[in-house]
């Protein structure tokens, strides 16, 4: 029975290399995926596969394609190691696909027990915050003022979820800078820059550690959360921000116009 080999992302192709050296390398990089080995001898033509989960070899199989002889498990693994510099392709798989390999490949091909493998691959279930953010890697849970708490987080990359009786905020931080924000209470939901004015409250704060690319992924999925840096925008479009005095004079003019209109209405006979 041929092995089930899913499609993945080929990261190396057609290299003539020593398999034991490659195994060491894949172990160091905690590789998940498989290597495909092709080797020709006088006895036949061999096509072999070794599957890895986080750098560890989990499944092996070799087929001699001319006489269609198949070797599985430890026997296949040893056979592949005996090949002198075969041609090797390295293909990366995600966790979902490697789980399928465990599900669909024959048990004889496994290099360790099925229960052990399944246990290793199972990820703990985490609750999900709004916007599909997984509540994993909780690093701190405190009661504090949200604005003060965030200002203290230098170089922090992660998600802050703060809850009070009358509302809840989600703040996305990257290197201590706010990248995204959302506020909710029973009647409204506010996202983006406006949320920055609503952080001055005391609540129960949970801080979750995330990788920078995870933060960017959340923003990409929910662009409304993004905090736009006004000064950056001004710079980009070469806009000179108005001075305080200019704003005041505009406001004064509007008010004066309104007063003038009111007076005009009073004087005009109906």
């Amino acid at each position: 029975m041929p092995l089930y080999v899913p499609k993945g992302e080929k990261i190396r192709s057609g290299e003539k290399i020593d398999v034991s050296e490659l195994l060491e390398e894949l172990k160091t990089m905690e590789f998940t995926g498989y290597i495909e080995v092709a080797y020709k001898t006088k006895e036949g033509f061999y096509l072999g596969f070794i599957f890895f989960s986080k750098g560890e070899e989990i499944i092996a199989g070799v087929e001699e394609v001319l006489k269609k002889t198949e070797y599985l498990g430890k026997e296949a693994f040893d056979k592949i190691l005996s090949f002198k510099e075969p041609i090797v392709d390295v293909t990366e798989l995600d966790n979902e696909k490697i789980s399928l390999c465990i599900e669909y490949n024959p048990e004889e091909a496994f290099l360790k027990s099925l229960d052990e493998l399944k246990e290793e691959l199972e990820e703990p279930e985490y609750p999900t915050l709004r916007f599909g953010i997984k509540a994993e890697n909780l690093v701190e849970s405190v009661e504090s003022n949200v604005k003060t708490y965030i200002s203290r987080l230098k170089n922090f990359t992660g998600v802050i979820n703060a809850k009070a009786d009358d509302g809840e905020v989600i703040i996305l931080l990257k290197d201590g800078k706010i990248r995204g924000a959302a506020y909710f209470n029973t009647s409204e939901a506010i996202t983006g820059n406006l949320v920055l004015n609503l952080l001055n409250f005391r609540g129960k704060i949970d801080a979750y550690l995330k990788r920078p690319e995870e933060i960017e992924k959340i923003i990409k999925r929910n662009p409304e959360l993004e905090i736009v840096d006004r000064s950056e925008l001004f710079k980009k479009y070469r806009i000179k921000p108005p001075e305080e005095e200019e704003i005041e004079s505009i406001l004064r003019r509007v008010i004066e116009d309104e007063i003038f209109e009111e007076e005009l209405k009073k004087k005009t006979p109906i």
């Binding site: 041929p2 092709a38 033509f45 394609v65 001319l66 269609k68 041609i87």
Partner: peptide, 12 residues
């Protein structure tokens, strides 16, 4: 390696 591509047919 052309034989490798042929090997995929041989597996059938």
């Amino acid at each position: 390696m052309i034989e490798r591509v042929l090997a995929e047919f041989q597996r059938i």
